[in-house]
């Protein structure tokens, strides 16, 4: 018997997980749009953010909120490295960067996954911070403090990305390169530099999303793959090129997963999601929020 309590619980849970997926997908959508690269390793970099959070807390007692200060610059640098040492040389040698990059990034994904197994073993890991085991009551529903913190971090990050892309010169240049690469070059935009920044931003936000997810869920080195599935769903539903789209897409996917698990067995939820994805692709292939 379903109760309103369960449905409300599902709704709130959907918003929490949806916001984290939205943040996770934002960077993926950015690099896909700007460079036509489908970064299959994106979720692995998020997982790196999760394990950095875990390690900093366990080894040095660093608060998960403080670990953002480490994750963002580190992943940003990794993003620059990814662009200059892997993507750029590959793009120079191929005409089909989308296909080539998928293979390249898939390989990278496997490397990162295996490195994580070597370093951290393949057991489930749970973050035990001082925020764990605290619940807040929203009406009759109790919500874990970690979920609220995760939501806050994801929301603030998405707002920052939105403002960066829409209010700063560099952010606008990212959109310009996305919309017309040659037009951007002729406008005096250093396309190479802007692309590198895009990768830095993409991986930095992935790392923060990894932090959000590890606040709420346990992780193993293999969970990246199921995250990647969600990233694809959100990016395609939201349409490439729109942070608003990614946010709404993330919330939709989150709500379906969370509410769906109230009504139907968890095993069928992926089925529902992918049927929905196919419907979206058939009706509006450019995504729900692309004009």
């Amino acid at each position: 018997m379903l109760s309103w309590y369960e449905i409300a619980h599902g709704l709130i849970g959907g918003i929490f997980v949806g916001a984290a997926y939205a943040l996770l997908s934002a960077g993926f959508s950015l690099t896909w749009g700007v460079t036509r690269v489908i970064n299959l390793a994106h979720a692995a970099f998020a997982l790196l953010g999760s394990y950095i959070t875990l390690t900093l807390l366990e080894m040095a007692g660093i608060d998960p909120l403080v670990s953002i200060v480490f994750i963002v610059p580190l992943l940003f640098l990794l993003g620059l490295g990814l662009h200059y040492f892997l993507i750029k040389p590959t793009a120079k040698r191929t005409r089909d960067i989308t296909g080539a990059s998928m293979v390249l990034c898939f390989g990278l994904y496997i490397i990162i996954e295996n490195l994580l197994v070597i370093m951290f073993k393949s057991d489930d890991r749970v973050l035990h911070s001082r925020y764990s085991d605290i619940s807040l009551a929203i009406g009759p529903i109790s919500v874990a403090l970690t979920s609220i913190i995760s939501l806050a971090i994801a929301a603030v990050s998405l707002v920052i990305i939105y403002f960066f892309l829409n209010r700063t010169y560099t952010g606008k240049a990212v959109r310009a390169v996305w919309q017309d690469r040659e037009g951007a070059m002729l406008s005096g935009i250093n396309v190479e530099g802007v692309t590198a920044i895009t990768y830095g931003l993409s991986l930095a936000t992935a790392g923060v999303a990894g932090l959000c997810l590890v606040l709420m869920y346990s992780v193993t080195p293999f969970i990246g793959f199921s995250w990647l599935v969600f990233v694809f769903l959100v990016a395609i539903m939201g349409g490439l090129g729109s942070i608003l789209g990614v946010t709404v897409g993330g919330l939709i996917v989150g709500l379906i997963v969370s509410l769906g698990s109230v009504f139907i067995p968890l095993a069928y939820i992926n089925l529902v999601l992918f049927v929905l994805l196919i419907i979206v692709l058939l009706i509006k292939p450019s995504g729900l929020f692309r004009r």
């Binding site: 606008k172 240049a173 919309q179 017309d180 037009g183 951007a184 935009i189």
Partner: peptide
């Protein structure tokens, strides 16, 4: 080769 999804002012800023 203008930027179709940006407004006129943003195009000029670029």
């Amino acid at each position: 080769k203008i930027f179709p999804m940006m407004n006129v002012l943003e195009n000029l800023q670029m």
